[in-house]
């Protein structure tokens, strides 16, 4: 596992700490075993490793989608891995943004509706003027003229930007991206990643990105290599 210099601490971003994490998919061969990972607030971290090494599993464990077989995931000072599923879900909805390789947009919703989906799930999130962020984010990500369109009429790059906007619309303290450029050509991927970083930096959001693209690693402050025989998260 390699590491990079931690980024400048941000007040807005979440501090993430994973300790002695272990997880095996039920009935599956793939498993994850990790000594420790620390993500500083506002830092940018990449996760690399071969297929089946547990990159996506790590993201899901940190997001609280999965619960580890052993070890803990701590978000700031709260051990979220021990929380009931409903509590993990609430924390994820309000504080963790997720971006997927396949975009995972709802085809029957417009761009505006896709971006504001978290507000539909929990209307309380849309209070305090946060719903105004839809237009603001869409404008910054170049989606302003596309707000009424449906995903099927968007390019891959546009779709991924919609997914990023959806992940950031509630102002999360942690952004988890699973190969966000995996389905994009290198040039579009670079643009999308620039925009992702710019938005995260603007809000001071902590970023963890799973990637296969080693050419991008220089842009991260920390890299977690799950292929490394040495256990534990690098820093």
């Amino acid at each position: 596992m390699s590491s990079a210099t931690p980024g400048t601490p941000h007040l807005r971003g979440a501090r993430v700490r994973c300790e002695e994490l272990g997880f095996r998919h039920p009935g599956g061969d793939s498993s994850l075993s990790l000594a420790s990972v620390d993500l500083e607030p506002g830092s940018r971290t990449a996760v690399i490793g071969p297929s089946g090494s547990g990159k996506t599993t790590l993201l899901h464990l940190i997001a609280g989608i999965l619960s580890p077989d052993r070890g803990t995931v701590t978000l700031d000072d709260e051990v979220i891995s021990g929380l009931p599923e409903a509590a993990r879900r609430r924390r994820r909805l309000a504080g963790i943004g997720l971006v997927f390789q396949e975009f995972e947009l709802l085809e029957h919703l417009s761009v505006r509706e896709n971006i504001s989906l978290p507000f539909a799930i929990d209307p309380a999130l849309g209070s305090e003027g946060r719903s105004g962020r839809v237009e603001e984010l869409a404008g910054r990500l170049g989606l302003g003229p596309l707000l009424r369109r449906h995903p099927r009429r968007l390019s891959h790059g546009e779709r991924q930007r919609v997914a990023i906007a959806r992940a950031l619309v509630v102002g999360p303290r942690l952004l988890l991206a699973d190969e966000p450029t995996g389905n994009l050509d290198p040039r579009t991927g670079a643009v999308v990643l620039d925009q992702l970083f710019a938005e995260a930096e603007r809000a001071g959001t902590t970023v963890l990105v799973v990637t296969h693209d080693h050419s991008l690693l220089a842009r991260f402050e920390q890299v977690i290599d799950l292929e490394s025989p040495e256990p534990g998260g690098g820093s």
Binding site: R89, R92, L93, L98, F100, L106, I121, R166
Partner: peptide, 16 residues
Amino acid sequence: QRERETLLKIGASRGW
């Protein structure tokens, strides 16, 4: 199913 899984990942409850 994939659509529901996305919603679950984002933070929607099964009840919702």
